[in-house]
Amino acid sequence: MRFALRPSFVAEPIATGWQAVKALAVLLAISVAIMIPLGLILVQVDLPTAIRGQRVEPPPKQLRDLFVALAFAPVFEELVFRSWLSGRVAALRYGLFGLVALMLLLADIALATSGRALSGLAVVVAFAGLVQWVRTHEADRAVPSWFIAQFRWFVWGSSLIFGLIHLGNDDTPSGLLGLIAVAPQMIGGVLLAYTRTRLGLGWAILHHSLYNAVFFGVPAALR
């Protein structure tokens, strides 16, 4: 809660091994506890969306959605939104690539381009930045003082944008209901930022993937 109200910077992860496993279990439980009541509210006030969410998709689309939710989205979104929260120069440089990728994603949502061409380009830009990070991360490890001083704004801003980017999902309603629908992602962005900085990037990717597994698995089990 202290981190959510005023995110603070740490130079290195503070939990490893079994301690990190226990911390991740608690963070995942908090994520689910936030998701369930907000999801129930959305179902009550927007029944058509709930009905669309219960629609059974053909197996190829189910497999594609499962791959995106459990593998691609956790890796891609954590790289773009939170990998650079280490504050190191190489990571911040990668963050610039992530910003360009994010702008391409937003443009794709706004313009509804044919075949999601801009989304594909965003993926290329994000992973080009990753190549650049691999080449420079050992040398450029310094953390600028301005990043530490403004760290909370980077966490809050990235979490807000992380939630808003989900307004582009096909089953997300518009207007105020849309903001309610993506509120768990905004809050989850703060939790994932905590996981990333206190446990490490790999743990944040795992946290993201497990959360999505619950999100997909519970409705499927109830059908």
Rank of each mutant, 00 (worst) to 15 (best):
M1C: 11
S8P: 02
F9G: 01
E12P: 02
G17I: 02
G17C: 09
W18Y: 09
V21F: 13
V21M: 11
V21W: 14
A23P: 04
A25F: 10
S31V: 04
G39V: 05
V45I: 14
D46G: 07
L47N: 10
T49M: 09
R52Y: 08
R55I: 05
P58V: 05
K61F: 13
K61R: 15
L63V: 03
R64C: 00
L70W: 03
L70E: 06
A73C: 13
E78P: 04
R82H: 08
R82F: 11
L85R: 07
R88F: 00
R93K: 08
Y94I: 01
L96V: 11
L96Y: 11
L102T: 12
L106T: 05
A110H: 10
A117D: 00
A122T: 03
V124N: 09
V124R: 13
A126S: 12
A128N: 06
Q132T: 09
V134C: 14
T136V: 04
H137R: 15
E138H: 14
D140V: 00
S145N: 07
Q150G: 11
Q150R: 15
F151P: 03
V155F: 08
L160K: 06
G168L: 06
N169Q: 12
D171P: 13
D171R: 11
S174T: 14
S174H: 15
S174V: 12
L177K: 15
Q185N: 15
I187V: 14
G189S: 09
L192I: 09
L192R: 04
R196M: 10
L199Q: 02
L201R: 05
G202L: 06
A204S: 14
A204N: 07
A204E: 01
A204G: 15
I205L: 08
I205K: 04
H208M: 07
F216M: 11
A220M: 12
